[in-house]
Design a protein around this nucleic acid. Structure first.
Lengths: 193, 193
DNA sequence: TTGAATAAGAGACGGTAGTCTCGTATTTAA
DNA sequence: TTAAATACGAGACTACCGTCTCTTATTCAA
């Protein structure tokens, strides 16, 4: 319980950040990322323009936090029981869970990937907050698979991870379906069928 | 030599389209896709705004054609000798050639992938003109590899192709390096080391 | 009690994408 | 020769993003 010594000056309105995230989530789910303007979001949240830009540098940063950093609503790829079951089964469960989330919020995710391409600042933040954590979950599963001999000992775990994430990024970005059949096929390709 | 019956009306200025593509290529290579405005491109090409929009619906469509549809300058992934050499070697050569092109024009490619996420119209055109042709080159190599027993007969060629393209999309979009070492590692992962 | 620091809302501002209109030029067909 | 069709350049127009300024409000420290 370390007391944060308060700065001089008017404190931030506590309700503003959640109001903006809620508004952003709701509007983006309803209308799609690029159909939603900053002006709409601040009107919906009942807040001024500068109050948004004081908290996030761009629309993309706000949406990233609104969608993918709220632990309470379950981010992509929960790994609740990292030590149970075979690596193969854990990877399959993880992929199915990811594809479920993509079915709901894939459009937002695609827009964030797009924004990351245009803005190096945001890209760094996106990689740190979104890509690397998910990368780690997969490499962890694969590493354990090597240790338990479910994968051959000379397996290139980093390469396999790039192929796994890459495959569904590629499919998602190009409008190909991501379903259970695809998850099973991918797992078979990795672990052998 | 079928004569195209000319419509009534003033014909298009033949020099306009190449002038716009040249200007777009030059400016985007120098300054980067999102630093270049339509206004800059038309000024550089010495052409009016509408003359551009009469030919391409968006900046992305112009840049796609300027960079990746000019056969003369070698698109990504030339396959000059599709029947020579092992499939493994052909895939390696192809990957190295792709990575070379990415080193030069990867920034433009990333921006086009980004634009494709925001605009379904452009996405369809991007998939048709860019993604599918390259998809075909890889699946062709893999299919021949199955036929020549370089890959096991039950290989899921479509899945392997998604993993290959996906892996370098994923790496490219996230600022990881794409070099010969990565190409070799990927080929080893596909064909066995 | 006062001053410094910071937040708030309101809204002007510059830069950009893509649309639209206007007057003019060029071509085909009647 | 004339009318229809289409191209041209010039530039106005709307909507948007992100920045900036102005005035007011709230908090801490002297």
């Amino acid at each position: 319980m370390t007391e944060i010594p308060r700065q001089a000056g008017r404190p931030r309105e506590e309700a503003t950040a959640p109001a903006l995230m809620d508004a952003a989530r709701r509007l983006v789910r309803t209308n799609g990322y690029d159909k939603v303007s900053i002006t709409q979001i601040i009107k919906e949240a009942g807040v001024s323009r500068q109050s948004l830009y004081r908290r996030w540098p761009t629309k993309a940063d706000l949406v990233l936090e609104a969608f993918f950093e709220s632990a309470s609503q379950g981010a992509f790829g929960d790994e609740r029981h990292p030590d149970q079951g075979s690596a193969r089964q854990r990877l399959l469960d993880l992929l199915i869970s990811i594809f479920d989330h993509i079915a709901r919020d894939g459009a937002a995710m695609r827009s964030l990937i797009a924004s990351a391409q245009e803005d190096p600042q945001f890209r760094a933040s996106f990689i740190e907050k979104f890509v690397l954590p998910r990368e780690e979950i997969v490499t962890d599963i694969l590493q354990r698979a090597v240790e338990s001999a479910e994968l051959p000992p000379q397996s290139d775990v980093a390469m396999l991870s790039a192929m796994i994430h890459g495959a569904f990024w590629y499919r998602m970005l190009n409008d190909w379906p991501l379903n259970t059949a695809f998850a099973k096929a991918m797992v078979s390709q990795i672990f052998g069928s």
